[in-house]
Design a protein around this nucleic acid. Structure first.
Length: 369
DNA sequence: AAGGCGTGGCG
DNA sequence: TCGCCAAGCCT
């Protein structure tokens, strides 16, 4: 298959020359990344999961710390979920950590503790989709499976001057990625095309003068690199007001709860609270939420801090108040678990980012009067 | 099959 | 301050 057609079917690109140009470029311009120094499928798997929707610089410290604490599939499978989430704290998209944990246990029971080497078995593991399966199998075992991450989508969209958003052309992009993939050097080719997207074919101000595919690239030829890939228009994010309670008891402890095991921030600990309803004061909201979620009565005291935070699909303002426990026995009505914790022990639990700011504010303010 | 799902860096 | 974007997957 010597040539590829672009989206309109009107042009042809020479596959052998594209492959060799990219592989030659990669020989001198590859990034030195820690997961490229190993063939251990576990380490490569961990890196690929961490790298989903997350940049290399963010992943690096998490990657090293993770492998220090959980160096093998067996270690991960035997760890507590709290330990796993604590190692993941701050990386976001926490389902990734839950899937890693679950998949490790699955590998222990179904694959004798050995990471599977065939595509169907790998893609069947939770958290591993088509692209991550291809990335792991090509990186660890040099198997010829295509990948399609954000880098590859952007590179191919420009190479072929794709006129619609990549989201609407997934099938076409997969075909291009598979047809371009070099069957003799799948590991190097997949790593190379990702490096090309990360260092040359960047989202803004691509460095076309240094690109091995400059003379093949339709977007560059037509002066469209700034306009491709085309982006979907998105609605503005809703903004919610949340009342949050830092509830103290007479022993100087604070009440925290663990969120339900799935969904937003699933399995993480937090300070209890909830959405402020229309025509409701923050204080009323907090008393109501604490009654509904924990079954206890509290007195709302001094204001601690307001925290603005943006999630992937909405924004929040957390209005945080010190509260005092008054009556009732705390029960996990709207959550997974609850605990009274000394302020010094809060660090032991996995909290989402916005809640770590609350912990810092508690440390500054100290206990209420 | 769209929408849910975090966080940090950038212009 | 704000919106956009980054090595996607699951339901």
């Amino acid at each position: 298959m010597p040539h590829l057609k672009d989206a309109e079917g009107g042009y042809a690109l020479g596959v052998p020359s594209l492959r060799s140009a990219l592989l030659d470029w990669y020989q001198h311009h590859s990034r030195d990344l820690p997961w490229r120094h190993t063939r251990d499928p576990y380490a490569i798997w961990v890196s690929e999961i961490m790298l989903q929707q997350t940049q290399v610089a963010t992943v690096l410290p998490y990657y090293h710390r993770w492998l220090d604490h959980l160096p093998t599939i067996q270690a991960l499978a035997g760890a507590e979920l709290d330990t796993v989430l604590k190692l993941w704290q701050g990386l976001g998209y926490y389902a990734r950590a839950r899937y890693l944990h679950c998949a490790a246990q699955q590998i222990m029971s179904e694959h004798q503790g050995q990471f599977p080497q065939n595509y169907a078995a790998v893609a069947a593991l939770p958290g591993i989709g088509r692209s991550t399966a291809g990335a792991i199998l090509s990186a660890a075992f040099d198997q010829a499976h295509p990948i399609l991450d954000g880098n590859v989508k952007r590179v191919l969209s420009r190479l072929f001057a794709l006129s619609i958003p990549p989201k609407q052309a997934e099938t076409q992009l997969w075909v291009w990625s598979a047809q371009l993939l070099c069957p003799q050097q799948p590991r190097n080719f997949n790593q190379a095309i990702m490096d090309l997207g990360a260092t040359i074919c960047t989202p803004r101000q691509p460095l076309c003068h240094a690109c091995p595919w400059q003379n093949h690239c339709r977007a560059h030829r037509y002066g469209l690199t700034q306009d491709i890939p085309r982006k979907m228009t998105s609605a503005p994010l809703p903004h919610k007001q949340i009342g949050v309670a830092v509830i103290w008891n007479n022993a100087g402890q604070i009440l925290i709860d663990r969120r339900p095991p799935t969904g937003l921030l699933g399995g993480l600990w937090e300070f209890p609270g909830g959405k402020i309803e229309p025509r409701e004061t923050v204080q009323e909201c907090i008393r109501r939420e604490i009654r509904e979620e924990l079954g206890i009565e509290v007195r709302v005291g001094e204001h601690l801090i307001d925290i603005d935070h943006a999630y992937s699909h909405f924004k929040v303002t957390l209005q945080v108040y010190y509260c005092h426990y008054e009556s009732g026995t705390p029960q996990p009505l709207g959550c997974d678990a609850i605990r009274w914790v000394a302020p010094a022990d809060l660090d032991q639990f996995p909290f989402p980012k916005a809640n770590t700011l609350i912990i810092a504010a508690i440390r500054e303010r100290g206990a209420p009067n």
